[in-house]
């Protein structure tokens, strides 16, 4: 238990730093709201090395804290919707044991965008923004692919050091 709390703290700090770095560098993909999703590296790393529930905990805490630090109440709602949907999809895909990290990450990237868009459509009550779905799916594939390669390499190299 003591080890777990230490890991939670370390990974939460790491995830927050990723959020901060992402807030610092404005990587624009031409579509508002599209981000690289660096923190997903931390979530995937935790899923594969520490534990799935721990990944969920850190993910939720990270979203709330990052929302207070860099965003506002709305960005918390959006991030939470995207984060939870992508977590569920990634977990289901991982549980099948048929896919590697790359696929898990791509599915996470796509579902994160879709989750955010659904909440956005509900909040502004304008279903025309669902028009962005194809663009967001494609950007989710691209960012998920990049993050998947990165986190795959990290898990391969240091993933087994966190086993409790």
């Amino acid at each position: 238990m003591k080890n777990k709390i230490a890991y939670w703290g370390v990974f939460l700090a790491l995830a927050l730093v990723c959020s901060y770095v992402e807030a610092l560098i404005p990587i624009s993909f031409g579509i508002p709201g599209v981000k690289l999703g660096l923190t997903n590296i931390v979530v995937i790393l935790m899923m594969y090395s520490v534990g799935e529930k721990d990944a969920l905990l850190v993910s939720v805490l990270r979203i709330i804290l990052a929302g207070f630090l860099f965003g506002n109440a709305f960005s918390i709602i959006y991030s939470l919707a995207g984060g939870m949907l992508s977590y569920i999809v990634m977990l289901l895909l991982k549980k099948t044991n048929k896919f590697k990290i790359l696929s898990v990450s791509v599915s996470g990237g796509i579902s994160h965008n879709i989750g955010q868009l659904i909440i956005a459509a509900l909040i502004v009550e304008n279903y025309n923004i669902l028009y962005y779905i194809p663009a967001l799916i494609i950007s989710g594939i691209i960012t998920g692919f990049i993050i998947g390669i990165l986190s795959g390499e990290i898990v391969l190299r240091i993933g087994n050091r966190f086993k409790l």
Binding site: K100, S107, I110, L156
Partner: peptide, 15 residues
């Protein structure tokens, strides 16, 4: 270890 047959099929289907 990095990418399997399933992943290629999965990614292709999604794209």
């Amino acid at each position: 270890k990095r990418i399997g047959k399933n992943d290629i099929i999965f990614l292709a289907v999604i794209i």
